[in-house]
């Protein structure tokens, strides 16, 4: 099917092409075609502390899952099947972030100051500071530091739904590749390799430096010109994105 034929084909024809023939371009057309549905559903959840863009991205994951799980034997329209999947994905996202919403402001502020302080201490000490050393800088307890670190993790969910945070990072939708014919996730669960190629260049390079060259986060931060905490976040998010692709 050429691009024009794909764009005019019915949902059912596209689903058949994707599920029976492994035609990834049919899946892409379906995703693109039903993104307005995702946007419409996402708008219902706007104003709850998340940007609409982020909610739409989460909803898009639900759409993709619906397309992937759709059974051709069903006599139901894709929109009907996808709607609860999209809504469910968005609700799950908010539920999982529930803890974050209740983080006290003092911890948020402490977390905001922590990155530069860790950088400064790392430079001064020639190594990564301990929690006690970080606490000493803020004249607070180590428990507060641990909680503030977690507050940062909670506010920046390291998942596919996190969305792009910079010009060099791809939208998660762009990182979702097609599934190879005959691919069995179970056999390759421990191998993230197939998804590596889909990452943005910078994230792929950071993973290579960390896991192939064995550089520390601090060394990577110096080379790339970002903070150690940002390196940590990018590594986690990259690994999570890759796993989501394989899932």
């Amino acid at each position: 099917m050429n691009p024009v034929e794909l764009s005019t084909a019915t949902d059912r024809d596209l689903l058949r092409r994707y599920h029976e023939e492994g035609d990834a371009s049919a899946r892409e057309v379906l995703v693109e075609r039903h993104l307005p549905l995702v946007r419409s559903l996402a708008r219902r959840y706007a104003g709850r502390g998340e940007s609409l863009d982020d909610i739409e991205q989460v909803g898009a994951i639900g759409l993709i899952k619906a397309i992937d799980r759709y059974e051709l034997s069903r006599e139901v329209a894709l929109t009907t099947y996808a709607t609860p999947n999209v809504v469910g994905e968005i609700k799950r996202h908010f539920r999982d972030k529930g803890w974050a919403i209740r983080v006290p402001r003092a911890l948020q502020e402490l977390n905001g100051k922590m990155g530069p302080t860790i950088e400064r201490l790392t430079s001064k000490l020639g190594r990564s500071p301990s929690i006690a050393e970080i606490a000493g800088e803020f004249k607070t307890t180590t428990e507060q530091v641990v909680e503030a670190m977690e507050a940062g993790s909670a506010y920046a969910p390291l998942s596919l739904s996190a969305g792009p945070s910079g010009d060099e990072e791809l939208d998660p939708m762009e990182t979702i590749g097609s599934t190879d014919a005959g691919y069995e996730r179970t056999d390759d669960r421990a191998s993230l390799e197939p998804a590596l190629a889909a990452l943005p260049d910078r994230e792929r390079e950071i993973l290579r430096m960390r896991f192939e060259d064995g550089l520390t986060q601090t060394q990577i931060a110096e080379r790339v010109g970002i903070s150690q905490m940002h390196v940590s976040r990018l590594i986690r998010r990259s690994l999570e994105r890759m796993r989501s692709q394989l899932g």
Binding site: P129, I131, S153, S159
Partner: peptide, 25 residues
């Protein structure tokens, strides 16, 4: 699950404090 990961990280944070592990460790 994702909503429980914070609990695990907090415990690990406490352990790292007791052992004086560096932030990167």
């Amino acid at each position: 699950g994702r909503s429980w990961e914070a609990v695990i990280r907090m415990v690990l944070g406490g352990i790292a404090d007791r052992l004086d592990l560096g932030f990167d460790q």
